[in-house]
Design a binder for these strands. Structure first.
Lengths: 283, 283
DNA sequence: TCTTCCATGTGAGATTTTGCACAATGCCCG
DNA sequence: CGGGCATTGTGCAAAATCTCACATGGAAGA
């Protein structure tokens, strides 16, 4: 029977692709990963990786073993969730993953309420576009704008938010509508509902800035560069910006709350779920 | 994420029940198992075992974690099988589990043939009544007298063997049939087909020795104590014993060959399977 | 072509882990 | 009730492992 730590390091290597990346993911030195793989090769009697100068790649046997080891990682995460689920009380750390602006504009300002209600809860708030994997426990709770299809997850629709056009009052006052300049997403977000909606408004007018970062759009709009389509939770709270009404049908996007089934009943996680619901609807 | 070696030690403890038994199963010192469990408790923040004087028992949380860890063991064995299956060539060690007398009387004498055909194969032959677990890789190939129901196994009927009554020629010559004394299994084997068959023959005559060990039955029969029901592969090869014909319908038992699906295509395992088939039928 | 960056190999010292020996404790059995 | 017997706890020395630091060797970009 191989050493399970060897398997853990090897599985990380197989997933990450390089010794260094695996070492970073595991929080150890790359030399450790390399030596663990050597040990696994010795104990299995198989050559698992090709060591070429500067690159280390899986052999066919390595791929086979990695495939067999993947369920172990799966099971290890299940153990982690079971351990988390067994924690008594509402104390503990809960990791929330949410879209960046949602995290900073909606969740973060209200965290003080959660803290007052449950002093024992420590929050780790990750604003990221890349979707955190709940089954890998990169996050305990996640907010997403698309209903996910992964299995093993509990999904609830928390509510929705709308978009409007925003610019500085001065810009809207001085610029005739036919001369409006717009600020929008770049190609990577071309299919997002708000971008499609914006296109119907823009027509053949000019888009002077395309960026994938919403904060950048806000900064540009604030400076008087043009008009941006922003979610209400961002635009309405910004003293420098003012809504501009349009005749097009307004657009809304749903917010989905995700939590792994195994963690759904954990008191601290439930408290966070309640809190996030209030962020959307109540306070 | 907990240390996987901690999980391995804890899973072994949960399965074996005591630190010492787990240590034996893992081939390490009991202190190591104890310390690993302490480490796992620290990393999960849960009390996994109750340390009472002289006994260590799982807590409820411990049982939960052990349940979650069981699939990891399963996956680890799958990795072991994958490693075994990837071994090239017919070389390597193959472990055979078989009923004790079958191992010594049928398989062992013919192993020389296998060895001549495939010099690279090393055989580990385990004669044991307790059924070795193929999915735990306690054996690669097993012979059993009952068709198993476990999933994941490849099963083939190899053949069958018959039973007859045996005693010393002198005993059969000097003893009138109504005075025959019999040698049989004890209560633990009372339900075996050959024991049921023997009972129909014994009638109200005497059973002078009951034992669960077939070798003991042979030794007793050889000494002239009485008549035993023995498989032909044992009785016919014994110069001291002679068959005694009966009118009852003769009994046969099937021999099943078991191998894990993952190992079925391994050259060394295939060679052993072929060899075992020849043991039953051919040579 | 040269530079810079990143991935990997290697050795030494420090840390961690392990095995061993011994002690203590409670259970089984006569 | 008392003597084995097996299990568990503990301290220490040995062994194994990890990190750190440095060297190497390509690949991407200027």
């Amino acid at each position: 029977m191989p050493d399970w730590e060897d398997l853990r390091h090897f599985a990380a290597f197989a997933r990450e692709g390089t010794l260094s990346a695996a070492a970073r993911a595991l929080g150890v030195d790359h030399a450790t990963v390399a030596r663990r793989i050597v040990a696994l090769e010795a104990s299995t009697g198989l050559k698992l990786v090709d060591r070429r100068a500067r690159t280390t790649t899986l052999t066919d046997d390595g791929r086979r073993i990695a495939t067999a080891a993947a369920p172990m990682e799966e099971a290890a995460f299940a153990v982690g969730r079971a351990a988390r689920a067994a924690q008594p009380g509402v104390d503990g750390e809960v990791t929330i993953s949410a879209p960046p602006t949602f995290a900073s504009a909606v969740i973060a300002p209200r965290l003080i309420q959660l803290r007052q209600r449950h002093p024992g809860i420590r929050i780790k708030l990750i604003g990221e576009k890349r979707r955190a994997s709940l089954s890998r426990r990169e996050a305990d709770v996640a907010l997403r704008l698309l209903r996910p299809v992964e299995s093993g997850l509990f999904v609830r629709r928390l509510g929705s938010f709308g978009f409007s056009l925003y610019a500085t009052p001065a810009y809207l006052k001085d610029t005739p509508p036919h001369a409006f300049a717009f600020i929008g997403y770049d190609a990577t977000m071309a299919d997002s509902p708000q971008e499609v909606w914006l296109r119907t408004i823009v027509g053949d007018r000019e888009v002077v800035l395309r960026t994938n970062d919403l904060e950048t759009q806000i900064a540009a709009a604030r400076s008087g560069l043009g008009i941006a389509a922003l979610p209400h939770y961002l635009g309405d709270g910004d003293a420098c910006l003012q809504r501009h009404a349009v005749t097009q049908r307004p657009i809304r996007r749903d917010v989905w709350l995700l939590v792994h089934r195994d963690l759904r009943q954990v008191p601290a996680v439930r408290a966070v779920m309640t809190f996030l619901g209030e962020c959307m609807n109540g306070g």
